[in-house]
Amino acid sequence: MAAPIVAATGIHKHFGALHVLKNVDLLVAERELVFVIGPSGSGKSTLLRCLNRLEEPSGGSIIVDGIDMLARSTDINKARQRIGMVFQQFNLYPHMTALGNVMLALRKVQGKDKTEAEARARAALARVDLADRAEHFPGQLSGGQQQRVAIARAIALEPRVMLFDEPTSALDPELVGGVLQAMRELRESGMTMVVVSHEMAFARAAADRVVFMADGQVVEQGPPASVFGNPQHERTRAFIGQIERH
């Protein structure tokens, strides 16, 4: 593997007495799409949130695009611009239009003037096929459209890595396709992606690697064909059997 763009090693996370991540390593190569699966409570979201330090790891090291995310001297707000994040609940700003949502960080973080920020925001919305919804407020958009605006908000900053935490789990089934389509296109453009999701068909078609977590540890990882088709560990087998039955 070439020098990884995300190198999280020896990650521990405690919530009080709860030991949620136990010495987790996650290395992601440039342009790689890594799928993280595992039972509820296994620590997938926590791991993802440690990568951009929304959650403070209790121990370990996280290097993203050459930046030591945990170093005191690191400007975390600068570092976060390289790491886009998409949430299960979209988390769009309800008081701003789609365009406003995408423009905010371009203006206030990257300091772009209004014309340039707007041009970039419109381009990002066009990439998720929402050019015609720029003036809509989140409340006027479907869940799928909201999630695509959230993707546009993240990619407008031109991140090096994108993190997705169950981007389709809050969506009605008929709206999932549009979001997966936007993710597929992002992948084809060469974006490095870490995706927590149970969309197995998407994982089979698009993932380079599947990481299975249980109880705060990485149990097994490999290409989708081998993790799904020929799991080595009993826990992986049980989990995949359970999902495929649904």
């Binding site: 951009n52 929304l54 707000n77 600068k78 570092a79 976060r80 611009q81 790491i83 886009g84 994040m85 949430f87 609940q89 988390n91 769009l92 700003y93 905010l104 960080a105 206030k108 973080v109 990257q110 959230a150 908000r153 993240a154 900053l157």
Partner: peptide, 22 residues
């Protein structure tokens, strides 16, 4: 909701700008 803070902070917006704009 906490998600509003997290979304804004994840784009690199600082504490005060997040408070002020979001």
């Amino acid at each position: 909701p906490r998600g509003q803070w997290e979304a804004a902070r994840s784009t690199g917006l600082g504490f005060l700008p997040t408070l002020g704009h979001v």
